[in-house]
Computed example of a mutant assay.
Amino acid sequence: MPDAPMRYRSPDEDSARWQGFAVRPGDIVISTRSKSGTTWMQMICALLVLRTPDLPAPLTELSPWLDWLAEPADEVYGRLAAQRHRRFIKTHTPLDGVPADPRVHYIVVARHPLDMAVSLHHQGANLDRSRLAELTGQPEGPEPDQPPPPVEQALVRWIDADPDPRTELDSLPGVMWHLRDAWARRHRPNVHLVHYDDLSADLTGQMHHLAELLDLDPPGPDLVEAATFDRMRARADRLAPDPAGVFKDRRAFFRNGRSGQGSALLDDATRARYRARAAALAPPDLLGWLHRDG
């Protein structure tokens, strides 16, 4: 008998919502850490499944975040149950917290953790925390409008922090927990690991490869163009993951974060400290792939 899925909970999410959800054969589950290419992969899947750059509804309606507490579970289940097309569903839960089904495809998108942390820092400044607290029934922090620390300082704190990865999945231990689990499953025919840098370097090739893995028709140039950063940012009103109005600026969600930006902000000693921490949290072959070491 398979082990019961791990449960992950935070003030905003609860992976237990997966236990009340009925999957269908062919479903696509997009499992990522925050700011690692989630919305990008949702858009790619939308284009490959629906075959048009003019999506019939906002991306968050087509591909809801199933475990987000800001939307009632019954509403999310109902919206997905009504979909007649092949479904593609967002989650930030690691694969060990999602019911495993050989008829379902699981896509895990990874990004260099330092680049992810920089983007996460900037997204934090774009959140309306009062609105988020209202939606999730959580109390506001004592000083919600206090300016964030400089990004360099925040990045050093992020590297040194050592929380329980199961409760703070966007921490460095949490990122490695998520990816280590996916890496161990990568040889399964329905588990697909995608690197953010590969999407950046060869979007056409990556979309064609994903279409083959998912048994979908290859995309034409119009579909690839619709998945580019500039096109997505121009349509932020329909593509930003903000169904409940928690962003101050939807266009700011599509910040042009560059690969290597995180490492460039560190001095040599801090960069070495990051490498040592990462080496203690993940196996060398995963780190070589994640860090693009040759």
Score class of each variant (00 low, 15 high):
T52L: 03
I159A: 09
N190A: 06
L172D: 04
R250E: 11
R255M: 04
S259L: 05
P241C: 10
D14N: 13
R24Y: 07
H178V: 09
L47I: 07
S63P: 01
L290Q: 05
S130F: 10
D96E: 12
S130P: 00
L80H: 07
R86F: 11
E75N: 07
F229I: 04
C45T: 11
H291N: 09
V224S: 01
K35N: 02
R24T: 11
M6Q: 12
A100S: 10
S130A: 15
H192T: 10
R33C: 15
L179V: 03
R273P: 00
P94F: 03
A81V: 02
L287S: 10
R103W: 04
D249R: 12
A117M: 15
T228Q: 10
L266N: 06
A182W: 06
M43F: 02
D54T: 13
P53L: 07
P243Y: 08
H92F: 01
R238H: 10
D217L: 14
G124C: 02
A73S: 14
W177G: 00
W158P: 01
L50Y: 03
D215A: 14
L287W: 06
G26W: 04
P219F: 03
R273N: 06
V246D: 00
A70C: 09
P2L: 10
I44R: 04
D249N: 15
E140K: 06
W18H: 15
R111L: 05
D237Y: 03
R103T: 14
A234G: 07
D160A: 15
A280G: 13
D27E: 09
L203D: 05
P163V: 09
T32M: 05
T32I: 11
L69Q: 13
A240K: 05
A184F: 00
R79K: 12
A4G: 00
G220F: 07
W18V: 02
R24W: 09
R51W: 04
A201N: 13
H178M: 09
P163E: 08
T39M: 05
T39I: 11
V108F: 03
D285Y: 06
L172A: 09
R250V: 06
R24E: 15
R186Y: 11
G245N: 10
L290C: 02
P99D: 14
H121Y: 14
V118C: 11
R111S: 01
G141M: 11
A70M: 12
P56N: 06
Y274P: 02
T32R: 04
T60A: 12
P241H: 08
D215W: 03
P142C: 01
R238M: 10
A46E: 01
G262A: 13
R86I: 07
A4T: 14
L266T: 10
F253T: 07
G288K: 13
A70R: 11
T204H: 09
L132F: 13
